[in-house]
């Protein structure tokens, strides 16, 4: 009977102080790791955003340059009356095949769209697919009197693209 109430008073265990110190150290280390992890995630997000923006600009530029380079003439924009440069979020030109084409920026969707403008009565026909996406700002700028040089300013998530196209088929 006496054995039933016999306790081993020498049982090894952690004291409250030890547990608190251990918990504090763990919390500090865990906090540092979590902070590092969050910082890395933010950094990765920024890098991914830059990469996406760069890709958006590259794709939009490429699509537009291919057609503009061989275009016949630039219809809009043109230099101002005082010969200063003129910019707009859209440009209209006659392409190699003789079609009147318009590129315009849809600020609501961040897309650059291409449409064919009828040479006479009718409504413009917008292409199903955009030629550029994720673009925040666009400026098509007429640079010369001969209407052969057009500047393209593109901005996507803080990344900028500065291009110009000289029309070969004037």
């Amino acid at each position: 009977m006496s054995r039933l109430f016999k306790h081993n008073r020498k049982r090894a265990a952690f004291t409250m102080i030890e547990i608190m110190v251990g918990a504090t150290i763990l919390a500090v280390i865990g906090g540092m790791v979590a902070h590092w992890f969050v910082m890395q995630r933010q950094y990765q997000s920024r890098i991914l955003a830059i990469s996406d923006a760069q890709q958006n600009i590259r794709q939009a530029s490429w699509n537009m340059i291919q057609e503009l380079r061989t275009a016949r003439n630039l219809i809009y924009p043109r230099l101002n009356a005082d010969k200063s440069i003129r910019s707009d979020t859209k440009t209209i030109f006659k392409n190699f095949a003789g079609d009147i084409v318009c590129y315009f920026h849809d600020a609501a969707t961040g897309q650059i769209r291409r449409c064919l403008v009828p040479n006479g009565p009718g409504v413009p026909v917008v292409d199903k697919k955009p030629i550029g996406s994720g673009i925040d700002k666009v400026a098509f700028t007429a640079h010369d009197v001969g209407n052969r040089l057009i500047g393209i300013y593109l901005e996507s998530s803080g990344t900028v693209g500065l291009e110009s196209v000289y029309l070969l088929n004037e």
């Binding site: 830059i50 760069q54 590259r58 110009s164 000289y166």
Partner: peptide, 27 residues
């Protein structure tokens, strides 16, 4: 990987600048 992306962005930007200059030279 971050440095590579920034390097790529700068390189693309530089190529765009060079293209812009080349097109302006034509005019």
């Amino acid at each position: 990987s971050g440095q590579q992306v920034q390097k790529s962005r700068n390189f693309s930007f530089a190529a765009g600048l060079a293209r812009r200059i080349s097109q302006h030279l034509m005019a």
